Amino acid sequence: MRLLIFGGTKFLGRAVAEEALRRGHRVTTFNRGASGADVPGVTAVRGDRTSAEDLEVLAAQGDWDVAIDTSGMTPTLVQDSTRILHGSATRYVFVSTVNVYEGWPTLPLTDDSPVREYTPVGPAGESDAEEYGRLKAGCEQAVSNCYGDRAALLRPGVILGPNEYVGRVPWWLNRVLAGGRVLAPGRPDWPIQPVDARDVAAFALDVADQGLAGSYNVTAPIGHSTFGQFLHTCIKVTHSSAELIWVEDAFLREHGVPEWVGLPLWRDYEGTWNVHATRAKAAGLRCRPLEETIADTWQWLRGGAAVSSERAAELGISREREVELLATWDTRTEAAC
């Protein structure tokens, strides 16, 4: 199969390229060459997808069975890409997000949950997550308008794994490696369902191979792991002597710890880790154990990898803040005894 991948050098795009080559596909990647080295074996085409001229040059070079888009972030960008490539790529697989759902992250989700309405300008007070979901909903609309039943929309939840540029798992690995008393948020039995980038990549290619269309939630099964298993695995793979101190959600909110970023992956809304991926499972989605994802991420970090994202700088509380919170928590729990 002849594949075109938008991106192809970072995290998910790189995983798609590597898996496609492993399957024997002919792979073309399109990127600026600014975010990482090309995967050996791909045909790399340099260009900026914000440039209609560069997209026209790309389209003239191809006759692809499928275009896989892992980097479309705005409706205008995706609309231009699909319009110009419509005659050069037979089918289109777009990687979206569960953020497109109206109920994310407060409500449990299924493949048929209502999707946000796209408007060029968001409502007053719109959060970054809401804006992201609204824009991705517009991207989906652009793909569907152009490709119709030759389009597949993949909606992953949290994606982890080697090459993770956001830095969520790396933050926790580095924190437990430092040892000492580690503030563990919420409950150790809180179920979580992140998905490995390599499993998302494999599913995207399964969809391409089978010519599937429609939308698919792409998450690990509900209850795939727990936050406790996640943190204990971080301790195990780093051979750390860290001690986990579990602190209640309400206490963290009371003391202004930002959900999701203050302690990466911590958010106790009912819908955060309650996404049904029924269609994807029926279509062949397979998810490796979270322990494997964490161990492989640690090996990647040990190889000298650097987390390269502006978002990484926003992750995590300082050690001083952690010590302060744990001292306050100790005082409260002692008073309650």
Rank of each mutant, 00 (worst) to 15 (best):
G24R: 02
T74A: 13
A52Y: 03
A151P: 02
D80E: 13
V57Y: 12
P40Y: 00
A60C: 10
R332M: 03
R181Q: 08
G180H: 04
L301Y: 05
Y101C: 05
L55Y: 02
R14I: 05
R155V: 10
G7F: 00
A208N: 07
L325V: 09
R150C: 01
R83F: 08
E53L: 13
V57E: 14
R286Q: 15
A201M: 00
V42C: 05
L173C: 10
G133Q: 07
V261S: 14
G62E: 15
T76K: 14
I5G: 02
D149I: 05
V307R: 06
A305D: 13
M1N: 10
T82L: 06
A277H: 07
N99V: 02
V100L: 10
C287S: 15
T82M: 10
L177H: 14
E291M: 04
T28F: 06
Y92P: 09
Q229T: 12
K281I: 14
G13C: 00
Y92M: 10
A34M: 15
C146R: 14
P264H: 08
D63C: 10
S225P: 04
F94R: 06
T328G: 12
S51W: 11
L109E: 03
V27M: 03
R22S: 02
D112P: 08
G103Y: 06
E310Q: 12
Y118C: 11
L183I: 11
P105Q: 09
L301I: 14
Q79T: 12
V166I: 11
C146S: 13
S308P: 06
N274G: 08
V66T: 15
A44T: 11
C139V: 08
L252Y: 09
L3Q: 06
V158I: 15
R116M: 09
G8M: 01
L231F: 11
Q141E: 14
V247T: 08
R253S: 14
N274H: 13
A204M: 01
E314T: 11
A335R: 03
V78A: 03
A197Q: 03
L205H: 01
I222R: 15
D149R: 08
A52P: 13
F11C: 04
L290R: 01
S127H: 05
A34D: 15
N99P: 00
L290H: 07
Q210G: 03
L252A: 08
V207N: 01
V39Q: 00
R22I: 05
L177E: 15
T9E: 04
E131V: 13
F6S: 00
V182C: 09
C146M: 12
T238E: 07
T29I: 03
L77F: 09
L315R: 06
F251T: 04
N174R: 15
E131W: 12
P105H: 05
H255I: 07
H224A: 15
S96T: 09
A124P: 10
N99Q: 11
D209R: 06
G103V: 07
R187L: 12
T110Q: 08
A89Y: 04
E320P: 03
A202M: 01
